[in-house]
């Protein structure tokens, strides 16, 4: 089986890799590039723990092939903070205790960032529906939604 050569940008850095034709982007990120922030919770696109953006579009990396990323820009949780400065969503998740075990947190943060880029002033209901594809089993979502709404407000004030 011959492998496919892929050139992509991940979190702003040009990255090349070889992958098998059937290999998912999630497996490439985790197993070939050691970017283990995206998690595999289901492998079927139901839990959102593997969320990344491809050219700004929120996707489940478990449902995306590694080969599809050729020529694309990929953003993952590892690129969310600006150096030592956390993204407002990351900061608000800490302040609101919006995580317990933390396994869903990277995917939820990536998804929430994508929401706020499209809709800087979501209602609570809009936030809940946007994040309905990201499962969290620990928190009951209460503090997650509060953190997202609070981050949105802070980002609006700052802009």
């Amino acid at each position: 089986m011959s492998q496919i050569h892929v050139t992509t940008k991940i979190n702003g850095d040009t990255t090349e890799y070889l992958c098998d034709p059937e290999e998912t982007l999630l497996d490439v990120l985790r197993d070939r590039l050691a970017l283990t922030g995206a998690k595999e919770g289901c492998g079927t696109g139901d839990c959102g723990a593997c969320s990344v953006t491809v050219d700004g579009r929120l996707v489940c990396s478990c449902l995306t092939l590694g080969a599809e990323a050729d020529g694309c820009e990929i953003d993952t949780i590892e690129g969310m903070a600006d150096g030592e400065k956390l993204h407002p969503l990351q900061q608000k998740f800490l302040e609101h205790a919006a995580l317990q075990c933390g396994i869903c947190t990277p995917g939820i943060l990536v998804a929430a960032k994508s929401l706020l880029e499209k809709n800087p002033s979501p209602t609570e209901e809009e936030a809940r529906y946007w994040l309905a594809g990201n499962l969290c089993r620990c928190t009951g979502y209460d503090k997650i939604i509060r953190a997202v709404m609070d981050a949105a407000e802070e980002m609006r004030r700052a802009s």
Partner: peptide, 15 residues
């Protein structure tokens, strides 16, 4: 699977 074994999602719930 999580599609058919459906745990609560954010849009199912109030605070």
């Amino acid at each position: 699977g999580f599609l058919d074994y459906r745990i609560p999602v954010a849009s199912d719930l109030p605070m």
